[in-house]
Design a protein around this nucleic acid. Structure first.
Lengths: 179, 179
DNA sequence: CGGCGCATGTAACAAGTTACATGATTTG
DNA sequence: CAAATCATGTAACTTGTTACATGCGCCG
């Protein structure tokens, strides 16, 4: 139930075509809800049919032609209703934790290398987030409308820090087996 | 690709029937990879057909009858191969972060209450994990085979701590609007 | 024997993934 | 014009979710 609302949010921030949305999902919004272009086109079709968005009038709406969408009042209302809704946090679902649990049963040759690899990836992602923070939320201007977006980004930063901390401790412990 | 391996791991730890697996997924393994009984039955069927597990011989394998499964050598090999495989960490996918991003666009009445509710839920989950840690991994016996399982649990604990920290900061900031 | 809990399933759907198809526009 | 790129889309499949169906055994 999240993808359509992610799309509505993105379209409210700026009307876009399918491919533009896809690219924006690869950057900002996609950091918290990723989607492929196939998913996005399918969902745009449904939203249009449901009367929540509409294609901006253009010359020739043909196959290889760009098609821009904007949010209709009904779409904005649907998004508001969704924001107000309450929903329990999902269970954790992480292949690496599961893999480690499996390793406890069948043995774990080479798990160390995988942990180190993940550590590197998370460090890189953290650096990227910090870069965005420096660029988009400098300490000078403290606009109220930015506050929520900054909090979301902070969530991503804290989450990467969690992984880095956990992986570091796991590797440290693995280096020196039980005394 | 994770569910079958979660099931193989659980079955190696202890041969079980479908419902028993479901219940164990509600407790230990499910903390990191949840599944409903329908998913589990479907997957047990596939694994059996693939020759990775087999039903223990019983008197009358009828519909309302319990059916226990054990892992065959092929299954153990498949699990080992999966553990050794490397896989990139998934993108974050969290409805609450997305909801907050949407709230930045359409406004956020009542978001505070939702954050407080989540804070409570995460505190409860943390308490549950700490209880399990105290019970299953007391500081006395420091068995090597437990090390990986303890690390997995630590992952869960750290993750809950991340949420608690982030939600607390978000609420504190929301209490005193920008000066 | 009637209802409840245990246990195993089926069916239909929704969401996400992977591979491929097609038309339009630019550019060497 | 051929190739690359932009842009939209189809099809088939896998995974996850929701609702319901069926049989067994126990207990009041």
């Amino acid at each position: 139930m999240s993808l359509p609302h992610a799309i509505l949010t993105a379209l409210l921030e700026k009307p876009s075509s399918g491919l533009e949305l896809t690219r924006r999902f690869d950057r900002s919004i996609g950091y918290f809800w990723s989607a492929t272009h196939q998913q996005i086109y399918r969902e745009l079709g449904k939203l249009e049919q449901a009367g929540q968005i509409r294609a901006l009038p253009s010359e020739q709406p043909a196959r290889g032609q760009k098609k821009e969408y904007e949010v209709l009042p009904a779409g904005r209302e649907a998004l508001s209703a969704w924001v107000a809704r309450s929903e329990d946090p999902k269970q954790i679902r992480d292949p690496l934790l599961l893999r480690m649990r499996a390793a406890a049963v069948v043995g774990a040759p080479g798990l160390d290398a995988e942990l180190r690899r993940h550590l590197g990836l998370h460090r890189r992602q953290l650096a990227e987030y910090l870069e965005i923070e420096k660029r988009d939320f400098p300490p000078e201007r403290n606009l109220d409308e930015d506050r929520l977006r900054h909090l979301v980004l902070r969530g991503g930063i804290d989450l990467e820090n969690f992984w880095i901390g956990w992986l570091t401790r796991a590797l440290a412990q693995d280096g020196q087996p039980s005394p």
